[in-house]
């Protein structure tokens, strides 16, 4: 599927701000993931064309970063942290509970297509609120089985496309340069 015009425009605008257009590769990958949910080889080819760079360069960069997805996932994205500070506060128990309630294994998507979940060894910067997870990139801290239940319930019934959220502070509106990709899907690897 080819890139939406707005995405292509956004990539161009961003590239123009950097002293080197190559710096716009990661922002471009975010823009694509925001629009399409993941990043295909074709899309990388389009980025290459827009930026006037070899496609191999885009692919080399994209493959280094764990947050760029290569295949479609559920509408919602749940990532639970299992690094040591979270482990100390019961992250393993919460992870087991989450998996049990969702009925699919780490890295998989629920049958209804609502949720893709996985655990991560990358600390997500919320150890003070451990155990924690990120749901479509919003922080959910001090997890308990009851809180997990409520979150899952909400996600299952929430038809909103992946990562869609209300527009941010109105003050941003008049400054297009600051408009950036809000990815539809964003996650790290297990």
């Amino acid at each position: 599927m080819s890139l939406a015009k707005a995405t292509a425009e956004e990539i161009k605008t961003r590239a123009a701000r950097y002293p080197s257009k190559q710096s716009a590769i990661i922002p471009a990958l975010w823009a694509v993931q925001h629009e399409q949910g993941y990043v295909t080889k074709e899309a990388m080819g389009e980025i290459a064309k827009i930026l006037g760079l070899p496609p191999s360069l885009i692919e080399a960069t994209a493959s280094f970063y764990s947050m760029f997805l290569t295949r479609p996932e559920g509408r919602h994205d749940v990532v639970i942290c299992i690094n040591a500070p979270c482990m100390l506060r019961g992250a393993d128990e919460m992870t087991a509970y989450l998996g049990q309630q969702l009925g699919v294994r780490d890295g998989q998507t629920t049958k209804d297509g609502a949720i893709t979940w996985h655990s991560t060894i990358e600390c997500l910067g919320a150890c003070g609120g451990a155990p924690m997870m990120q749901v479509d990139h919003q922080f959910e801290e001090n997890l308990t089985p009851e809180r997990i239940d409520a979150i899952i319930q909400k996600l299952r019934t929430d038809p909103a496309p992946h990562g869609a959220r209300p527009p941010k502070a109105a003050t941003v509106a008049s400054v297009p340069a600051e408009k950036v990709a809000r990815p539809r899907a964003k996650r790290t690897q297990a």
Binding site: L29, S66, M67, V180
Partner: peptide
């Protein structure tokens, strides 16, 4: 310029 990383 605000530049967003991607998980590394």
């Amino acid at each position: 310029i605000l530049h967003r990383g991607a998980g590394a």
